[in-house]
Design a protein around this nucleic acid. Sequence first.
DNA 1: GTCTATATTGAGATAGAC
DNA 2: GTCTATCTCAATATAGAC
Lengths: 194, 194
Amino acid sequence: MKDGVDRRSRILTTAGELFAARGVQTTTVREIGDAVGVLSGSLYHYFDSKEEIVLEIVSAFIGELRDRSLSVAASTSEPVSCLRELFAATTDVLLAHQDACLIYQNDATCLNTWPGFRPLADQMREIHLIWAGVVEDGVEAGHIRVEVDPSLFAYLAIDSICDSLNWSRSVDGVGFATVANICTEVLLSGCLNQ
Amino acid sequence: MKDGVDRRSRILTTAGELFAARGVQTTTVREIGDAVGVLSGSLYHYFDSKEEIVLEIVSAFIGELRDRSLSVAASTSEPVSCLRELFAATTDVLLAHQDACLIYQNDATCLNTWPGFRPLADQMREIHLIWAGVVEDGVEAGHIRVEVDPSLFAYLAIDSICDSLNWSRSVDGVGFATVANICTEVLLSGCLNQ
DNA sequence: GTCTATATTGAGATAGAC
DNA sequence: GTCTATCTCAATATAGAC
């Protein structure tokens, strides 16, 4: 209990920044300790392993993304509006979990080799199915082009919004929110009829 | 000299598959040796380091992608046709370098920490500038919507085509070429005027 | 050119004093 | 709850015989 925020949270935040910037495997527990201002061994008072730190960061992100996506899909029946709201909700959640999203994106291959990541991979699949379902409804309602495979568009949309984080750090003068909005507009108008 | 193909090439191919499937850092030189049918130490007769193996695989991919993109941009003046041809050329190059592309995508954070990757990162920036230039021409010619930031669209397009590789392995019954084509159509019609 | 054997390093993690 | 000190292990890479 210090600094106004408890140490455990500080470790999660700091580790998240390092993991996002340099990758999970490249970041050592010693670097995390240094950045927090504590010896690496002391981290193990709060966490059982480095893996546990990563999973806690990423699960907060994926969990919230799933909950928000579910509630959007449940509350909006018109497919195209619903799709637009899914974009907005996703952008919103990413804003609050930028490091976690970067970790998930950039270290997916690594995370997928961890048995402890299974439940999170399942949640991501759930999110993907929510999007694909909405797109499918849109196709059936005649608003979305039939050539657009729902499952594929779901991947395209979700990954693009997540990638916006990376891009907004490379394109100067343009913030993440703006980048995400442009992605949304391009992808939406690219999938709609006429 | 064996199997009709020399061992050095076999090492590159096999290592590429492993790196693409499980990540660069997760794959050990012992696993590569096992897969090739040779002891890990013997790999060092052909390469100075594991890093060198990775860089050789990825540089073949990025080099070809750069050359093809340059020649497309040089030979086609009408922006929208040129953009369409960039999509096609990129899809084409990826088909021949699937593993390399997956490595580049999934281990970018790791590669970026290697000094030896610098020149390849520069080549990728070159490719990005080619795309952005073409999009900018399209905006000025009035064919592409002004809201579409050229640099951003370049990221969106290139990353989406590369990601198609991952997606085509998840969406069953749809090959990479089809996935890449749908991406191309959605992104093109999403950025064009009217 | 491939092997056996091993050097070397750096990482995650632990034990126990304070 | 943090430190000192260290264990353990796995990975890259090397030396030298065959």
